[in-house]
Structure formats: C-alpha cells, structure tokens
C-alpha cells in the first residue's frame, strides 16, 4: 500500500478484511509480525514517536471518556501534545461543535462523537490524517461537510487516508484507492485507473434506424466483437476503442446515433474484486471474500511501501 503525499486515499475492504488492523499496526497499537511500514519517510514502529506529532488519526468507532466535555477532552489531548489551547477552539469550530463543546460527551449522538473524533485528529494540524469510517453516524449534511473538509484538507497539502464503506463517497473524495480482501491487496491505484482496469469495456450503441440493428450486429460479430442485441440498442463487449465501432458501421452504411461506454462505479468494482456481491438465496459469511494466494500482489506493478 502506498499513499502519495497530498492525496486523499481510500482504503477499502469487506468487514473483517483487516483495514482497522492495518491502521492500528501502522499507528503502533498492534505489533507487526513482519513486513515494513513507513509514515512520512520514517520507518515505523521504530521511529513512531518522532512521526506521531505529524499524524492525526481516529481508529474505528470514536471512544472518549463520557463524563468529560468535548472541550475538556480536546484540551487534555492538546496538553499532552504540547499544543496551544487556542487550537481547541479552532477545531471545534471546524467540525461544528463550538456551541455544544461544554456538554458531556455521554450526551452526544454518534454523529457528534464522530465530529469530536475528527476534531481530535485535526488538533495537531497533522501532515497525515488517518480516518477510519469518519462518516459513520453522520447525517447527510454532515457527510457532505466531511467531504468538503477532506477536500479542503487535501488542497492545503494534508495527506488523508480514509477507510469507509460508503463507496460513493470514496469515489467522490479520493484520488487513489487500495482495496484489500482477507488481509491481501486486490487492487491499488488512482480511482480512475482502478475503475478503468475493471470496467468490462462494454459499449452501448444506438442506430438512427432500429431496423438496422440486426445488420449492425452481424457486421460487428464478423469483426470479432461480442454483441448482445436488445430491443432498441446493441450492447458490445470487449471493445478497446469505441471509435473502431463507428468506423466499422459507417463502412456498412449504418449510422450511429449514440455510442456510450458503460461506466462502472467503485461499488461494482469493489463487489467484483472482493467477491462479496450478494447472491439471492445465500447468506454470505463475514470471511467469505476473495482470497489472494501467496504473497505476490495482484495489483499493478509499481506499488511500493510507505506513505
């Protein structure tokens, strides 16, 4: 897994695939039994204490001492990190808890606790922000605010690693993703590339005259394209360059009114890669996802280690 500086990186995987374990290990909460990790150029866990002041993180569900107020909670963390108390007000404002900061955490909703967790991670003004399910419990407005916040933070030069199951959000926010299954990487790279690599190359074709569809299907099949004929359009598979379809049909005197590559979304890619798509009549168990055998990564070459 490699995260480029200044990017928002999505870290995805089914339940139990090892996302939180990976993040905990990276942050020194779990002892690794092998491998290498580095944050901001520092190998961890050996030099974690040097890099920790530059890393803000929330891991799994937000947990705080319930009888302290949000302000007390952040103030104590700021004290432990030798940060000015003024920073507490700044992050409370940033996550929208300014007016409720004097209330005890036990009275907070899950979404408010999540905001407090994000505030605690932002308190250090970190260079790397690691957020495990930050949108968990947030209302729609909160999710949108979180999305904007992530973008703004990335724009300011902060690197953000985001673990989430809200794949639509990940697709909107992230520059790159890593997808894991049962502790192994199954895909990695910029979001567009991952989507492109796992798109089926399907293209929808409509013609000016519906009556020309059978002739078009014959011509395309003869050219080696897999064709599915529908009532008012053709679905083509295995098309590398959609322009070849236009040229081939024009040569036959058949004119295209619509040529649309079928886009895949991150959710469908995720379900395909991890083999976790629901199957009618079956109850998938937590560890039933794709298994990558051996240690060789299945993702494109060029991946390294470190963030």
């Amino acid at each position: 897994m490699r995260v480029e500086a200044g990017q928002v990186h999505g870290f995805l995987g089914p339940n139990g695939s090892g996302k939180t374990t990976t993040l905990r290990t990276l942050l020194g909460l779990i002892r690794p039994d092998g491998g290498r990790m580095a944050i901001l150029g520092h190998e961890v866990p050996g030099t974690l204490d040097q890099v920790a002041p530059q890393v803000g993180a929330i891991v799994e569900s937000p947990q705080f001492f319930p009888h302290f107020t949000a302000r007390d909670t952040l103030s104590l963390l700021a004290g432990a990190g030798d940060l000015p108390q003024q920073r507490v007000d700044e992050v409370l404002e940033l996550v929208g808890l300014r007016d409720r900061s004097g209330e005890r955490v036990k009275t907070y909703s899950l979404g408010m606790k999540q905001r407090l967790a994000v505030a605690s991670a932002l308190l250090k003004n970190p260079r790397l922000l690691i957020l495990d399910e930050p949108a968990n419990g947030l209302d729609p407005g909160g999710i949108r605010e979180m999305r904007t916040l992530m973008r703004n933070l990335a724009a300011s030069g902060m690197t953000v690693v985001l673990s989430s199951h809200i794949l639509g959000e990940i697709q909107l926010i992230c520059d790159s993703v890593t997808i894991i299954s049962l502790g192994r990487r199954v895909a990695f790279g910029p979001v567009d590339e991952v989507l492109a690599q796992h798109s089926s190359g399907a293209v929808r074709v409509r013609l000016e005259a519906v009556t020309d569809l059978p002739a078009a299907a014959t011509a395309l099949t003869r050219a080696g394209v897999r064709v599915t004929t529908n009532e008012d359009h053709l679905m083509l598979a295995g098309v590398d360059k959609p322009a070849t379809v236009t040229r081939l049909l024009a040569e036959q005197g058949l004119y295209v009114s619509e040529l649309a590559p079928i886009a895949v979304d991150l959710e469908s890619v995720f379900l395909e890669l991890t083999a976790t798509a629901p199957v009618p009549g079956q109850h998938r168990q937590v560890d039933q996802s794709v298994r990558v055998d051996g240690t060789a990564p299945s993702a494109p070459a060029g991946g390294g280690w470190g963030a």
Partner: peptide, 15 residues
C-alpha cells in the same frame, strides 16, 4: 482510560 478508549487516544499522541 482503558475502558473508554482514552488510553488508545493518548497512545496515538504519545506512542
């Protein structure tokens, strides 16, 4: 501190 996750939060700041 252990029970409410405070220790984990602190260790993220002071490893």
């Amino acid at each position: 501190e252990w029970n409410t996750g405070g220790m984990m939060n602190l260790l993220l700041w002071r490893p």
